[in-house]
Simulated assay, not measured.
Amino acid sequence: MSTSKRNPVALITGGNRGLGKSMALHLADRGVGVVITYRSNAAEATDVVKQIEAKGVKAAALALDVGDVRGFDAFAGALKAELAGRFGRDRLDHLVNNAGIGVHASFAETTEEQFDALMNVHLKGTFFLTQKLLPLIADGGRILNVSSGLARFTFPGYAAYAAMKGGIEVLTRYMAKELGPRKITVNVLAPGAIETDFGGGAVRDNAELNRMIAAQTALGRVGLPDDIGGAVALLLSPEGGWINGQRIEASGGMML
């Protein structure tokens, strides 16, 4: 919850598409101003900003490669300028570490390059970007890290990806403990299988895979981006302020 009477402002990494875009739009529906980041598709990000602004709240998009810590100083400076210029603020209220990449490879065949790419984006990037942005997060703010159902249940081909997400889940508890004196809550949201273009869009486009996952989900279907966008808005709402250091899975009951 914002420490001022003004509407909160959230930063969502990877907010130009997929789950990040849905998160941004759901937060905008609740009056939250949003800064999204994108890695390369500026046109896509601009379109999301327009959709957010059409809801009557302020929005901005900034370029960021979460997998390259060398760019974090410049990004923090750009974010600070954007907060002051567009939002009239010097602090964020919410940080959602959402940006990610997918690699599907068996444990035996995963390359060092694939492992490093996953680590740099999902684990190292989240760790050091959050560290860099701590001065820009308001006391009493919220940090939400994004994990995966694959950190709990197991599908062959995701060993390296799931290991990074497992690391994020442990990191979340430590962040919650250490940032507690600033009244900043830190939680982790673990989506189940969602119909997006993530990982080549397999869950969305492969009908057999989609049916298989739906059959193993208590609610009988695969997740949609809005399922996750709504969960994020819920966790970042004023009513979610006493939830801290927790892993929340949003999977419709996969693999129960």
Rank of each mutant, 00 (worst) to 15 (best):
A190Q: 15
T185C: 13
F198M: 10
L150C: 00
T130H: 02
A138T: 09
G192C: 00
G140M: 08
V188H: 04
H122Q: 11
F115N: 07
F127D: 01
L123E: 09
T196M: 03
I168C: 03
I168R: 00
A190C: 14
P135V: 13
G157V: 07
S147K: 02
Y161A: 02
N120G: 13
M164E: 13
G157H: 06
L123C: 06
G199C: 03
A176G: 12
S148Y: 00
V121Q: 07
R152E: 14
G102R: 08
L171M: 15
R142C: 12
M164P: 09
G125Q: 11
T111Y: 11
N145W: 00
R152W: 05
G180F: 07
G157D: 07
L118H: 01
G157W: 04
P191D: 09
V121G: 09
G125I: 04
A176T: 12
N187R: 13
G200K: 13
F155D: 13
K124P: 06
Y174W: 11
T185W: 08
E112H: 11
F198I: 15
M164D: 05
E195I: 03
I184N: 05
F115Y: 15
Y161R: 01
I194G: 00
F128M: 08
I137G: 13
A202N: 15
I137H: 09
N120D: 15
V170P: 00
A105W: 02
E112Q: 11
A193Q: 14
V146H: 05
V186E: 10
I143R: 01
P181Q: 14
K165S: 05
I143D: 02
E195N: 05
L129C: 08
T130E: 05
A176I: 11
A163M: 12
F107T: 05
Q114Y: 03
E178A: 09
K165V: 01
K183A: 14
D116S: 14
K177P: 00
F128E: 06
L144V: 08
Q131T: 10
K124C: 12
D197I: 10
M175C: 10
Y158N: 06
P191H: 02
F153A: 08
A159H: 06
L134G: 13
E112P: 04
T111F: 02
R152H: 13
Q114A: 11
F128W: 04
N120Q: 15
R142D: 12
L144A: 09
P156T: 09
G192D: 01
G200Q: 15
F155V: 12
G157Y: 04
L189D: 01
H122A: 06
V146Y: 04
H104A: 13
F107Q: 03
